[in-house]
């Protein structure tokens, strides 16, 4: 426990002492703010148009949940931003230790791989939370000011989804970072993997064969959709948790095998 905390604290120190964390957080806030505003404006325009048309033609307005539409749009923006920013969060975490040779200190200390990897992963998750939690301000604005307001549960489920997605991406990024000692290579590779996981369902098409269903299952954003609608499905929960587990497990294997190779 103490080893784990020591690694986590050191990692947080490293993350927050470098400008990368602040640039990331700044860019993330600016973009989420901007997109939230844009989505809000679009949705308001759309409802106004609907209302206007309805008035003109004397029909009744079709039922449209404006606040839910805003939230869905916003959560999808969050997921896209995470795909772009997570590679930058994870790129240095193990690659830099290898490059600087500090991995020699870590691997010759009485630490287990579990303590080392979980320590680093937790620090990354803390950074993710530091990025995600303040954006709740936008959603809370909607919650308090819109009429009808979106149910709080929907908001929380959406955020849980974003958090789990981020967690799965971080675990993947951590693994890729363990494969190389070059940060840029790690970032580009991680991003490549994310793009594949993102668009993989397009490759599967709409077929109902086992292969295409399997491929569709692997698409990391498919499982996110239900969360943005406020639906909590244990199937998706399980998907993300096993994804995280797999990522961390592969990182451990990679540390082991790099021991053998070097």
């Amino acid at each position: 426990m103490r080893n784990y905390l020591a690694i986590m604290t050191k990692e947080l120190h490293n993350l927050f002492v470098s400008p990368i964390a602040y640039v990331l957080i700044g860019v993330f806030f600016a973009l989420t703010g901007y997109f939230f505003y844009m989505i809000l404006v679009n949705v308001i325009d759309f409802t106004m148009q609907q209302a206007f048309q309805a008035q003109q033609f004397g029909t009744s307005t079709p039922p449209f949940d404006a606040s839910a539409a805003v939230m869905r749009g916003f959560f999808s923006v969050l997921s896209t931003l995470l795909l772009f920013l997570v590679p930058v969060m994870t790129m240095g975490v193990l690659a830099e230790e290898k490059k600087q040779g500090t991995i020699e200190l870590l691997l010759t200390s009485p630490l287990t791989h579990l303590q080392l990897i979980l320590g680093k992963y937790t620090a990354l998750v803390v950074l993710l939370l530091v990025m995600l939690v303040p954006t709740m301000f936008n959603s809370l604005l909607l919650y308090f000011l819109s009429e009808p307001s979106p149910p709080l549960a929907t908001l929380l489920v959406g955020y849980l989804g974003a958090f789990l997605l981020g967690g799965a991406l971080l675990a993947t990024g951590l693994f890729v970072s363990s494969l190389t000692e070059n940060q840029i290579v790690a970032a580009v590779l991680t991003f490549g993997v994310f793009i594949i996981l993102w668009v993989i369902d397009a490759a599967a098409g709409t077929g109902t064969t086992l292969t295409s269903e399997t491929i569709r299952y692997l698409s990391i954003l498919n499982h996110y959709d239900d969360f943005t609608k406020g639906v909590l499905d244990s199937q998706h929960l399980f998907f993300y948790l096993s994804f995280i587990f797999l990522g961390l497990f592969l990182t451990s294997v990679s540390l082991d095998s790099s021991n053998w190779r070097q």
């Binding site: 050191k10 490293n14 470098s18 600087q100 040779g101 500090t102 991995i103 020699e104």
Partner: peptide, 9 residues
């Protein structure tokens, strides 16, 4: 080690 394993920051 040959290169002292230090964290510069």
């Amino acid at each position: 080690p040959e290169n002292p394993p230090l964290y510069g920051e």
